[in-house]
Design a binder for these strands. Structure first.
Lengths: 219, 219, 219, 219
DNA sequence: AATGAATGAGGCTTCATTCAT
DNA sequence: TATGAATGAAGCCTCATTCAT
């Protein structure tokens, strides 16, 4: 757990707010809000400046370009969202403890990402939206996914497939179904229907059950 | 089946291409392409005009506003994507045939929507993107969903829950998990990873199995 | 003579004002005035628009870029200034008439360019100024000079050197001294001291004499 | 000769580099380079600061205004370029030595200004460019020219006209032709065609001959 | 003396929309 | 119906200059 924390800490501090001037922090905050509300392309730098309480020129002193501003917000978010897969013990734990199962891993992952999403709804929205059009973000996503998420995830899934806990679908399919269901839940919960009266604990459990039974080896 | 066809036909003809002048058709086609490529906000009417091979003014003769153009493309798409739920026998069939199961429904639904998505990738992309910001599209979506999709879907799910085929989750949860998994598959298949060497038939079957077992009553 | 006229006519009509809308003509006129007065870099497009009595956007409908506007003004001017050297009989005349001398050629050239400069003072100023920084203009100048002016001039000078009318300086030197003196005169007359009470006819004659005696074969 | 040196020394020391801090010297140097390369209006103070390796604010500590910076560079240059005419013996020498001719004076003048131009190409470029638009520079030029250059030059020319060495053109015309030819040579040599394989010694001699014969009394 | 963050006016350019033809 | 010239508001960005440190 402490190891995980350290890594997340590092990730979060990568471009840490500590080094930012107050004005810069205000700019980032305003930009995040507005990009999430209206989309990157429909948000003007003058609006951001106004909401941040800053002269428009000040934005460009810190970010050469409007796109720079977007990237400085969105690109690290991609890494952060994939953060659990950077933790050393994400995989190790699974292998070392013979009694641990896919359910335990899933439960940890979902709870962890649920909390993260809850704290970062606007950022999540921005990434989801702009990933469609921003080349540099797609590159970052591909890099993170293929170099960090996919290999770790594959190890784990293969492990449980060998243990017979998971149906013998192609590993990629298992991963797809798992991620799709988790992300689908988070998107529904926080972006599509944030005002629905969710019973989060139960809904999380049902989602875990759904995945587990969906992937369970069929006799 | 014929009933279903009629309804879809109606849906498709709502703003049917038959009534369009060639220029108008060119405009729509160009707009769909560009909105999907670059996003609504980042596409200029002059670019659309150029690609459509018409004068800029011509666009505004047919669509009062750039947003009108978007809506005339995207709003019907929402209806079309929910089309199966408009079909009378979508539900009736389920009730009349005592031997039919959730799997059969799911299989039909997925195959049907898979084909539809395949034929309408750019439109799908546009709707997914702009739903986030366009109020009128959200309204249309909510209307369709709560008045047509949800009630029908609820009837069906309740029916199978009563028959004991589906675990006793809240109906909304079952619907959410089902839709999330289907849409997640389509998005992954056609938008996120269109170039992956998919074995569509098998992947569809696995997705169906995943949903079915995920929702299956646990002894 | 008529031949010469035709060629000049062509040159002048190359991008002739006839094809321009009234607004476009106004824009060009305003741009020429302001570039000459304040320099290209210190003239804003909004000032040009104001003086032309046009919306700022209108400028960019006709000229993609502020620099385009400059080039569309200045580049043809380079050709026009070198126009006499495009005339077929500029050289032929010299060779065909055994009694003609360098003085006659010079006299024609100076008178002709004097009238031209007089009618195009602002354009002359713009070219002289911007030649220093605009790459594309330098290229055009080099092209015109090395492909049209220099070869013709060289033929003529060599001819008169052979006839013993001109001192045996390198041809390039003769050309340099001639052009330098003519251009120096025009620049002084029209740009540096336009308000001095010039006696143009006499000053032209003195300039011709100066060049002729300066280059005359020394016994 | 020593007298001449003293005067030039004074001129050069007017705003002498000795009194400058290293930073200030760097700023001036950077400004000269960039103004010559891109022109005054197209050079930003931040670029100058960057090339000089100082903070933006530092420039404005030494020069109240960007224009101040330009003037502090260009205005003294005007004086320096006219420096020979400040020397007492420039004229005296001519009168005292009955055997000296216009050729000797010209030769000295050209050699002297040639060396000066060679050492100050960027400054020359700046003055030539900005003279067109900067009022204060024009004033300085007019002052220097009418108060120092013109009177001295006139004395000398009148002297040689009386001696019959120079054709009886108006004195202003003689001066114009002389200066035009010299400046034309320097501009061609150092600014328009600096890369041409010049034979400087010979070209200078030819230029002197050209002027002398051009002005020589015609029998 | 030196810094560099901050400013806000203004620069060039794009854009959706209008309208006379 | 179709055009495309014209608009002017707004967008992104740059710049000379100021000021607290």
């Amino acid at each position: 757990m402490s190891e995980d924390d350290i890594i997340q800490e590092m990730l979060l501090n990568e471009d840490n707010d500590d080094q930012l001037t107050p004005k810069q922090r205000k700019i980032l905050q305003a930009a995040v809000e507005m990009f999430a509300e209206k989309g990157y392309a429909s948000t003007s730098t003058s609006e951001i400046a106004k909401r941040a309480g800053v002269a428009e020129g000040t934005i460009f002193r810190h970010y050469k370009t409007k796109k720079d501003l977007l990237y400085s917000i969105a690109v690290p978010m991609i890494t952060k969202f994939a953060a659990p897969f950077f933790a050393q013990h994400f995989v190790k734990h699974v292998f070392n403890d013979q009694y641990s199962g896919y359910d335990e891993l899933l439960r940890k992952l979902i709870h962890n990402r649920f909390e993260f999403a809850k704290e970062n709804i606007p950022l999540l929205k921005i990434v989801l939206q702009e990933m469609a059009f921003q080349h540099e973000m797609q590159e970052k996503y591909k890099e993170i996914f293929s170099e960090n998420v996919l290999p770790r995830f594959r190890e784990v899934v293969d492990h449980f497939k060998e243990k017979g806990q998971i149906e013998d679908y192609p590993t990629e399919t298992v991963i797809r179904l798992t991620i799709t269901t988790i992300v689908g839940f988070l998107v529904t919960r926080f972006i599509i229907m944030p005002d629905y009266p969710w019973d989060d604990e139960q809904e999380i459990e049902r989602t875990i059950s759904f995945i587990l039974h969906g992937l369970e080896t069929q006799s």
